[in-house]
Design a protein around this nucleic acid. Structure first.
Lengths: 110, 110
DNA sequence: AACTATTATCGTAATTTTACGATAAATAAA
DNA sequence: TTTATTTATCGTAAAATTACGATAATAGTT
């Protein structure tokens, strides 16, 4: 086994899971924070800040890119990364829709 | 390797990652939605709704519980699960703090 | 006490993730 | 053109995740 049964779940649930997964590693959270703070950032600067090797950081950047949360602009030899604000907003809305889907009045449990 | 270097990152970033990880699988998103909709739910009912085996669902429930997002009340032979609203609020605040940590005015990238 | 129902845990296998060094590819600088 | 810089990708190894069936544990029922 070991293979997530994605098809068995709704598109919406998979979308939420995709965004959550992108943020499920502290390195990727740190990268997002950095990019949000700086508006844009050369890849090398991200590598310098994080306590991980260049190749590992590159992998994390790729995952954030695959999730759509960041974009990379090639600028000569360097690559400038920045947050895709539209997708970030989508992610935020997705997650908040889940968080706010509570219909109860007050009562907690059972 | 294969071991996340959690200690190298801030407590805050790890907290965000922890909550995100809990929601990084569509089955767990579906469980959260179910519990939020129903206020409380017998474990067996969750198993019936999800396209996964009883043992797998139990594992997912355990992960949500470990992340603090849900609680389980033992009621005789059954277990009644419900959302820990306080922790859910914490998770929402954590994630929104990340999403809203954008300082830029308008400009997108590079 | 024996049986049934419900849920957690164990054992296992396939897959994915995390991490690194080494190397390739592409651009800039000498 | 050669050299250096920057980033992505490849190969690899350890660990974690996902999933299931089987089994244990617990609480009801007969």
């Amino acid at each position: 086994m070991g293979l997530t049964k994605s098809e068995e779940f709704s598109v919406k649930d998979n979308r939420i899971a995709k965004f959550a997964k992108a943020l499920s590693h502290p390195a990727r959270v740190a990268i997002m924070k950095l990019l949000l703070k700086q508006n844009a950032c050369i890849c090398g600067d991200i590598v310098d800040v994080l306590p991980l090797s260049q190749s590992t950081v590159s992998q994390h950047l790729k995952e954030l890119k695959n999730a759509g949360l960041i974009k990379g602009d090639i600028e000569g030899a360097t690559v400038c990364y920045c947050v895709d604000m539209k997708e970030l907003k989508t992610a935020q809305d997705c997650l908040n829709e889940l968080f706010d889907s509570c219909k109860r009045t007050t009562a907690e449990c059972c």
